[in-house]
Design a protein around this nucleic acid. Structure first.
Length: 734
DNA sequence: AGTGGGACGCTTTTT
DNA sequence: GCGTCCCACT
């Protein structure tokens, strides 16, 4: 009956069994945080303290929510239905649909994606006469979002805030943006939290309802909450005070997105009498990795204090490697070769990851993996629902669902081309404003009155007729048939069939996938909610692949081997972060490094290059200060940081560069380690001849200019000259 | 209205 | 180095 408790260590057990009153669980990396959270959830249900729908469980990502749902179900032995378990945004969307009229929306409001947000804001800024070059709409969006993160509605931004941006009109822009959102019956991501918090604050009866419902509250990743999320939680928890927050102040890496570490640091103050439980036994990493991570993070101030200790008796292991290299190419080669070597020794590629500071760094590694023929996956890049063709298709669906969705109308009215240019669109806008109707109806009115002519009339007329037909099909044959018909009839599929670009076939494939995905939903509205809130990849073709991702994307994951390249001043810690946020920014960068190190179970390989290409030109850099902070006794330095620093900074005159030793010298290639160059793969002549037209997944179409065994030199039409393995290309059909 | 070329700016990111 | 945006040309 309670065997699920026996599997916990004493501190985990305390975190699970302290059910009543506020609890803060400080859970270091790899200490069984998720296990505690899910077991606690199950424990509440199994001890009959609450029904499943009386527990509110909040996560940041859909992935974490899904995982918790599955694990709770596993402990309960049955699928957990009717739970209030989800991301902050999903839960708030659900609440807001119930009370939308209280903030001037209807319950069918649309949730805008970032494209829509920017487009809407751009219109608002244009109307205010702001030069988009001087004041970038995305920057303005950032300011508005930070305000929303702090729980500030457009009327309550303090007078002394951000008066210089947008000629001091920032607050007016914010207000205008909000009224446009209301006019098109839409909410952006920030609104979901902000609106619900306002409702809970201003309507005691509604708050009362939720107080009666939620007897226990569980919060994951508490260190990442922003002010509005904190306010929302505090409102909901103020009656029962049964709130359990799990987090790790050392892994707070989202302050630039509005997260406030202070929330976790202040927990005891906010919830007097709170019980603090520390989870410090790490079951993930070897002792040297833990020691190195601990040594690094000890350089931060203002921590709640927590020391990871090895939780396994077999936690001995290799030292952390720190490798100094000449340039970023050599770094990519080192990583590729070591990955290949590990694979030869029987290690799975799925258990290796390359974690970088910025997304742009992945490219060099991608190319290297391709050359070596090592399968890889980039985690996080463009997500399925962010692809242009998917957004277009969804805009059509949104219009079927809600004819008043003006943003969707604007997106697709001329996609595929229907001859609707700036002029035509403007007259539709004018008419819409005159009549006080949505753009779709305004367009119909213009056609009825013969004010649109020729191609435009034909095109838009057919589109409008299409919408009434597609709505019929929807009610008769269901949403899947409707979307398939719609995409064919509106000309969208044909548009991509006629497109000769290398991406077009993939886009058609994605559209098919979208139609297929529709089958998983009972209603069109349910599907749209999912699309708005779950911006994630379809399970990234799993299997035997090395993972490439940013450090941010790696939080919560773990691998046997972790490569941590690019530990150089300016890149990591990021100069930009230090400029913008000073000492606090530096500490956050250090936490990011800590997150990176603690992802590794057995092997962590840190590296830094003396020269790196940034944008178009080469830049010389010195090793990251974080490298010096790693405790020596657990680190093996190869091509040591100190040596490189000497050579480049303090003794440049050793080499003559013709500039009087004025520049950091980068004259010769110090061959630090010979063994990276692995013996080649067995040579095998390629079957593809010089001159052949070929197609490559990433680079598109090209012509073979030379071959050497199974390596091909190819002049790609778009991507330029590359050398790739022949198995990565196929004969082109055109 | 649609296309193509050049200038520009940007690279934490999740919902 | 690449994608986006704007403008000039067709």
């Amino acid at each position: 009956m309670t065997d699920y408790l026996v599997r916990l260590n004493p501190e985990q057990r305390e975190a699970v069994e302290t059910i009543d009153g506020p609890v803060l669980v400080l859970a270091g990396a790899g200490t069984g945080k998720t296990r505690v959270l899910t077991t606690r959830f199950a424990h509440i249900l199994l001890t009959k303290r609450a029904f499943p729908n009386q527990v509110l469980a909040v996560t940041f990502t859909n992935k974490a929510a899904r995982e918790m749902r599955e694990r709770v179900a596993a402990i309960l032995g049955s699928p957990a239905e009717g739970l209030w378990l989800g991301t902050f945004h999903a839960l708030c969307a659900r609440m807001l649909r119930r009370h939308a009229p209280l903030v001037g929306l209807t319950s069918s409001f649309s949730i805008l994606d970032s494209d829509d947000q920017i487009r809407l804001l751009k219109q608002v800024m244009q109307a205010a006469g702001l030069d988009a070059k001087r004041w970038a709409p995305p920057a303005m969006m950032g300011i508005i979002q930070r305000w929303k993160d702090r729980g500030l509605a457009s009327g309550s931004v303090p007078p002394n805030e951000d008066t210089d941006f947008a000629n001091g009109q920032a607050k007016e822009i914010y207000a205008a943006y909000q009224s446009r959102l209301k006019a098109v019956n839409a909410a952006d991501f920030g609104d979901l939290l902000l609106h619900v918090t306002e409702i809970l604050r201003g309507h005691p009866d509604v708050l009362e309802q939720y107080h009666r419902m939620f007897r226990y509250i569980l919060v994951d990743e508490y260190q990442d909450t922003n002010v509005v999320q904190y306010l929302w939680l505090r409102l909901l928890a103020q009656r029962s005070r049964n709130i359990c927050c799990v987090g790790d102040d050392d892994q707070s890496i989202y302050s630039w997105r509005g997260a406030e570490v202070e929330n976790i640091l202040r927990f005891e103050h906010d919830f007097p009498g709170a019980k603090i439980v520390r989870l410090e036994a790490n079951y993930r990493s070897t002792a040297p990795i833990l020691a190195v991570a601990a040594g690094l993070i000890a350089n931060n101030e203002g921590r709640l204090g927590k020391t990871l200790r090895p939780g396994r008796t077999d936690a001995t292991g290799e030292k952390v490697s720190v490798v100094g290299l000449w340039d970023s190419d050599e770094e990519a080669r080192m990583v590729g070769d070591r990955a290949e070597g590990l694979r030869r020794d029987g290690n799975s590629l799925a258990e290796m990851a390359i974690l970088v500071r910025t997304g742009a760094q992945t490219r060099a590694f991608e190319e290297r993996m391709m050359t070596l023929g090592i399968p890889y996956k980039v985690v996080g890049g463009l997500r399925f629902y962010e692809r242009a063709e998917i957004r277009d298709a969804i805009a059509y669906v949104r219009l079927v669902n809600q004819p008043a969705d003006d943003l969707a109308f604007e997106r697709i009215v001329n996609v595929p081309r229907r001859g609707v240019g700036e002029q035509a669109l403007r007259s539709i806008h004018v008419r819409a404003r005159e009549l006080g109707v949505p753009l779709l109806d305004a367009a119909a009115a213009l056609i009825a009155q013969g004010e649109l002519r020729g191609r435009v009339k034909e095109g838009v007329g057919a589109l409008l007729q299409g919408f009434s037909r597609w709505r019929e099909i929807l009610s008769r044959d269901g949403h899947q048939v409707m979307l398939a018909t719609l995409l064919d009839e509106c000309g969208y599929t044909d548009m991509w069939k006629q497109d000769k670009s290398p991406e077009a076939p993939g886009r058609l494939e994605n559209l098919k996938e979208l139609v297929r995905a529709l089958a998983d939903f009972d209603t069109l509205a349910g599907f749209l909610e999912h699309v708005s809130l779950v911006m994630e990849n379809e399970e990234n073709s799993q299997g035997e692949r090395i993972s490439l991702m940013t450090l941010h994307a790696a939080k919560g994951l773990e691998f046997d081997t972790v490569f941590l390249p690019g530990w150089e001043e300016g890149l990591f810690p990021s100069q930009r972060t230090m400029d913008e946020s000073g000492a606090k920014g530096l500490e956050e960068e250090r936490r990011l490094a800590y997150v990176g190190l603690t992802r590794a179970r057995r092997l962590a390989i840190v590296s830094h290059a003396a020269n790196r290409r940034i944008y178009a030109n080469w830049q010389t850099s010195i090793p990251s200060r974080f490298i010096e902070e790693l405790p020596d006794e657990h680190v093996e330095r190869i091509g040591s940081a100190a040596m490189q620093r000497d050579r480049m900074i303090t003794a440049p005159s050793v080499f003559s560069n013709g500039f009087g030793g004025q520049f950091p010298l980068v004259a010769r290639r110090p061959k630090v380690i010979e063994s990276w160059e692995q013996p080649g793969r067995p040579a095998r002549p390629s079957t593809i001849p010089v001159g052949a037209r070929v197609f490559h997944q990433k680079f598109g179409y090209g012509t073979v200019t030379a071959t050497q065994d199974d390596r091909l030199d190819i002049a790609f039409d778009k991507a330029g000259d590359k050398r790739v393995l022949d198995r990565f290309v196929e004969a082109a059909t055109v």
